[in-house]
Design a protein around this nucleic acid. Structure first.
Lengths: 227, 227, 227, 227
DNA sequence: TATGAATGAGGATTCATTCAT
DNA sequence: GATGAATGAATCCTCATTCAT
């Protein structure tokens, strides 16, 4: 599996495809390649959601994107690279939200400031979810399987998100915003609950009303589930 | 040319891996069979946990179990079949626990009875977890990916567990044991939180103290996470 | 374990070897396809004649055709499919000859007309033989083995030829063109004698003079073999 | 395919299995092994007729004979060896009939003597057919495919039968018993016609009345098929 | 650029044959 | 003798990747 291109752990991060391309960045050429890449991403996303990243063939993706297999490699190096490109926007948005939250908590001088930072984070992540439903679903479906091969980028994102969430929770904990529960526990519990609800909604279409989920979730977080 | 698959009428279709094996059930032969199958399961489980079900080769499994590739097929029909055999004990135990809980809730005449049933379920599932840590971890890692190919049995189990949990929660909800939150929501939230914590523990070794997780989880479920 | 084959619902089932190929029918691409397929057929035919259809490996065929194993499947779905493509021209020609003969006998109003029809059939089949000596030899060699697997198309052809020949003979019989011998018997006897002679010629190179065979055959059919 | 045991052309003819066995020839031991071998032959014959020699697995044969696969090799060296044992009686009987006919023709001093010899041959062969219908059918089905692998013994028999028949016919021809047709031609024509009729009878069950076939065949040989 | 042909490594599966019990 | 477990070579088929056009 992971023999040449991606030596798994190290991840040298040499993207040769996207760089060194003719034409100015933003010119006709550049536009075109962006469009093609987007088409690839769209096609791949649909297939990945349906059958899982590993089971989908490069040929299938290319054909679903309306291009020949050989052309695939013009826009992307690998299936892994495609997954990378696919989740890049979500990863960037999440990282940005986390960055902002971290900055805010660092700068916060009182409990109110901290709370505001967390609230802001929640809203930012909500925006990500709204803007990238299918990508979020892909993340939810694939993030827990060992990050081997093409799934690596997803697993990496998951690790980063988890670690940063725990770190942020630790701050809240230190400021006594949370019950006497280890911050890792509460962080993971909230993440887990949220993710499970989103998955049920996105994959299985269980809830009609998204707002309802959010409200219930907040309430559970605040008060528990017992009557 | 013909483009459709050719049916081949004759095909005597001898069951490989037949249930009816020579020797009495429990005899030397039968024992050996079981042991070999167990070895396969053990070897496979380790590999599956490390790299994901899809990425693992039958040849690798066989070799890890100390047997030649061809021998694999004496004990199991498929990778999928192996996964089936692998999770069978957990599936059975979970189903049994759910059955018992359903029976108890059906028979319960008051709130105390209901609560006892749920508590019992929690303890039963805890036993499953204790007895099958690695299998539970496999389940947690793989259950959310679309159930295609060898992963199908896991996905099926996930669906069953989810559905039954929601059904049981609905009963609790109807008896006003829970806050005014849709039962699907609270069920999935608890499942999600629990699973995420278990995964962190089993896969990433985050918590030293398992009891701590349980306690915290219960508290969060009862009271929320805020201080 | 499960013992039955797992259906796998999704399976997008992309037709390999699709009829709809890029480029116009007759263009460069199409030409190339046909040539490659022809090369496969040629290589396969030689091997089949030498060692029998069953004993020949797909890899051998591909290599003999000067291509890599994997490429085989671009042009043909199966070994069976290849056999299908291989005998298609003969099958078509034979069927056409039979069709024509049937039409003629249907339209015939007198014995002369009937005789002309049969003579015409003989000449048509002779043309087939001349145009496809090796394929006829393949047919002769393989037609009698049970039509399992890749040999199926040959067996099917044999059945069709036999049935139609008997039907045509029956017509002749009804018009008293033949001795008081059941039409099935005389039909099969002639088929058998002819095929055996052709096989001896094509496979074992027994006769130098093809015309001699034909003449003798006709004479035997007309008068028997005794002096 | 034909790599170690049977180097195809040479055929060293070392049968190690049947020789060097404990017990006297004819004793309990010997009886037993004959019975087992016969069971193998019967089972194999049925399968061979149904699906062709090549397509049948050794495991299938053994199991159909009610023994374990490993036991197969106790009685027979190979599938080829089994085929050898299978057709041995027919081969021996045919050879004997041919031997006798050759001797008679050699000793014959007049045409009547020759005719008697041929008639005797025909009757002898008829006996063979009657005594070994299924084996004759197997021969008819398999004899024309190149004698590679397990089919070799059948192909060898075919060659011998053909050659000897032609030789005998040549004698008849030299004594002007036959029309002015090359003896190879008439020999093969009769063989071909006969074999085709037998195959139709044995495999496809076309004729109810065997005697009818024989009568018709003789008549055709003597007088041709035309009215 | 775009296409699909070509390659070959890799993985699943079967099966003849050997062996320990 | 009998059994079926074990082995590994052989074969089918797929698919990522490269290339010529």
């Amino acid at each position: 599996m992971s023999s040449k291109k991606h030596p798994e752990p190290p991840a040298p991060a040499v993207r040769r495809v996207p760089s060194q391309r003719p034409g100015p960045a933003g010119g006709k050429r550049d536009q075109n390649r962006r469009r093609r890449l987007a088409e690839l991403c769209d096609a791949a996303l649909a297939l990945f959601l349906e059958r899982g990243i590993e089971a989908v063939t490069i040929d299938e993706i290319a054909r679903a994107a309306g291009m020949a297999k050989g052309n695939f490699y013009r826009y992307v190096e690998d299936k892994r690279d495609l997954v990378d490109a696919l989740i890049a926007p979500v990863a960037a948005a999440i990282d940005a939200a986390m960055d902002r939250c971290e900055a805010s908590t660092d700068a916060a001088t009182d409990v109110a400031g901290l709370n505001a930072a967390y609230m802001r984070l929640a809203l930012d992540l909500l925006q990500v979810y709204i803007a990238h439903r299918d990508l979020v679903r892909l993340y939810l479906q694939e993030a827990r399987v060992p990050g081997v091969g093409a799934r690596a980028p997803v697993a990496e994102l998951e690790q980063r998100v988890t670690a940063r969430t725990i770190a942020l929770t630790r701050v809240a904990h230190e400021h006594a915003l949370l019950a006497k529960i280890p911050p890792e526990v509460s962080a993971l519990a909230v993440i887990g609950a949220t993710e499970r609800l989103l998955l049920a909604h996105l994959r299985d279409g269980i809830f009609e009303d998204e707002a309802q989920i959010a409200t219930s979730l907040v309430r559970m977080v605040m008060e528990g589930i017992t009557g």
